[in-house]
Amino acid sequence: MRSAKQFVTDFGWPRIIIFIFLVLLFVAAPFFRVRIDASISDVLNRFGQNGLFVLAMVPMIQAGCGLNFGLSLGIIAGLIGSTLSVQFGLLGVFGFFGAVGLSVPFAVFFGWLYGLLLNKVKGEEMTIAMYVGFASVMFMCIMWLILPFNGPTMIWGYAGKGLRTTITIEGFYRHFLNDFLAVRIGDSFVFPTGMLLFVGFCAFLMWLFLRTKTGTAMTAVGSNPDYARASGISADKMRTISVIISTVLGAAGIIVYQQSYGFIQLYTAPLAMPFAAVAAILIGGASVNKASMVNVLVGAFLFQGLLTMTPSVINSALQTDISEVVRIIVSNGIIIYALTRKTKVTK
């Protein structure tokens, strides 16, 4: 009884409600002629697409930098890598890993700068991260127009220059991971084995990393910076490392997303992406200063489940397109909830 109560307070009512809501959606789905198998396939697919973004939240939360509202920086690095990969005409396995490989140096560099910046503004990380993210997205918007890309599938046909808003990667590395060992059952169920394996592998690496000496030090910095300092740890260095890792994951994340989605989305597309990842990890039970692998998996699944199921079930039940509004309320509500919760660092 007591532990049940404890569980509820730890997990938080909003999350439990969301969980129950999602279960109800699945139960109700058949009554509104929504195919369960298609839905599950869809949820898995989206889970894979977004898993890395959610995972990218972990290191910064653990190191005490808060929620990474500036994930767009990593996404931008990934976009640079993927556009370069397409520009160089890398195909299939080379295309995918080429994109990742090309984006990592950018991600490390951006992350390093971003980390330096966040170290200067301790306490205000989240607001500043958000605006740094916005500003860099806008800066890249200009760059996409100016940079001398010339792949015929990439640039605007009529102007002869400037990248398109969406670039197809059909024939480059579309579904490279999705189709790897994919299992097809019936018409509408596909298990994207490759993508889930990749996400799982990254999560495993993160799990390992958090257990290394550096990972342990990083967690300690987030848990109690003074303790870490007294033990000879440089908080700034750990924070910078966490930001770099988060940024690299963001870069890899967008490439995984693209290969499943089939397009590279440029310009203002990265603006809103961090918010979804933030909402997902919070729904998974993380707080502003503690996150675990379980939070990532549960959160990504719950949030993407919600995104998939609300449109199909609610819309067919109520005959309206209300799901978008439900999504806005739920995802932002959970962020507000997390931000207004008393930080549970006992001091």
């Binding site: 910046l117 200067k120 503004v121 301790k122 306490g123 205000e124 607001t127 500043i128 605006y131 740094v132 916005f134 500003a135 806008m138 800066f139 918007c141 200009i142 127009l145 100016i146 400037g162 310009y267």
Partner: peptide
């Protein structure tokens, strides 16, 4: 390209907010 100016002013807007916040916190 008019879009460049368009993006530029968005960039300036967000950038100015980020910059001021950083400057202040620092």
């Amino acid at each position: 390209s008019a879009m460049i100016g368009e993006y530029f002013r968005q960039f300036i807007g967000y950038g100015v907010i980020a910059f001021s916040l950083v400057l202040y916190a620092w």
